[in-house]
Write a protein that binds this DNA or RNA. Structure first.
Length: 289
DNA sequence: CATGGTCAAGTGGCA
DNA sequence: TGCCACTTGACCATG
């Protein structure tokens, strides 16, 4: 079982980060050369973060979605430093593979494959394809071992009709994305429980990521163990399923994530990798490593 | 250099 | 109606 954290290393601070980006105004003012500069810095720092992880016994990490700022709006192969960026990404991927470190990603809430709006779906495809390209450049597996995980992110009054659009739109994705795509249960009762998501799994066979925290808001009438084990059945043989774990922040909406975690979740004897979503990032899991 | 207002994008819940 | 929460806060103008 691996414990992982997401995107940002608090110990290394703001000087070592793979999340440099820019606002639209700057993108329009400085253009592709500045995108290239930031992407190269981000790619180089990813290796530093992975090295830090290995030195500290952390073998599971979620890559930032902001490695190439505005990368879903441009052809990244035209960037002035593209060769060097690709080379750095490859080095990071090689490093991860050599040390058997698991890398995943989680594109943001603007990715809505169930949307009835064509432009939303097209934007979603562009963002997912960027993630696929980056993982390809890193040389990561085309399997859910290196998952690209999203939520459905919308219901529009009818889950089944919405999920049918997911299933249709899935066919528009490249093999790079389709082979890695996973779906996660939601933290609202009106949205998708693990049981709901089985409808998508049964149609297109992509695995379900079980989020412990979200499950408490939307059980689908399954116990934690039942939902976890149902999700586990959706993963291919030989690939350790991923789960997400977080705890509620006191004083906020209960869905908000706490800085640290008090415990490691119950796995009921199953082997899973656990991505811990806590605001203190690697600091939250170090004491459990 | 610290800080606070602002920032691409979608959706649903809530005061 | 406007804010919050989710992927992951980061950017940038100002003092």
């Amino acid at each position: 079982m691996n414990l992982g954290y997401a995107c940002i290393n608090m110990t290394l601070g703001k000087k070592v980060t793979m999340s440099r980006t820019m606002v639209r105004r700057t993108f329009e003012a400085k253009g592709l050369d500045y995108v290239s500069d930031l992407a190269l810095l981000n790619a180089k720092d990813m290796i530093k973060i992975l090295e830090w992880n290995r030195m500290n016994g952390i073998m599971f990490f979620r890559a930032s979605s902001a490695i190439v700022p505005w990368g879903d709006h441009i052809d990244i192969t035209t960037l002035k430093d593209y060769k060097e960026i690709a080379d750095e990404l490859r080095k990071a991927g090689d490093y991860a593979k050599y040390w058997k470190m698991r890398i995943t990603c989680h594109p943001g809430p603007f990715n809505v494959l169930v949307s009835p709006k064509e432009n939303v779906v097209l934007n979603t495809i562009a963002d997912l394809e960027l993630h696929g390209k980056i993982f390809d450049l890193m040389g990561l597996d085309r399997s859910p071992y290196n998952k690209i995980n999203i939520h459905c992110n919308g219901v529009y009054g009818d889950k089944k009709i919405a999920m049918d659009r997911f299933i249709d739109n899935f066919k528009l994705l490249s093999d790079s994305v389709r082979s890695r795509l996973t779906i996660e249960n939601d933290d609202k009762a009106s949205m998708y429980s693990v049981k709901d998501l089985m409808y998508i799994h049964n149609a297109i066979k992509i695995p379900i990521v079980f989020d412990y925290h979200h499950h408490t808001f939307n059980t689908g009438n399954l116990s934690e163990q039942e939902a976890l084990e149902l999700a586990i059945t959706t993963w291919p043989k030989g690939i350790t399923p991923v789960t997400h774990y977080s705890e509620s922040k006191i004083g906020n909406k209960p869905q908000a994530h706490s800085d640290y975690i008090e415990r490691i979740p119950e796995t009921y004897g199953n082997i899973v990798d656990i991505m811990v979503e806590a605001k203190a990032k690697e600091l939250a899991i170090l004491k459990f490593i």
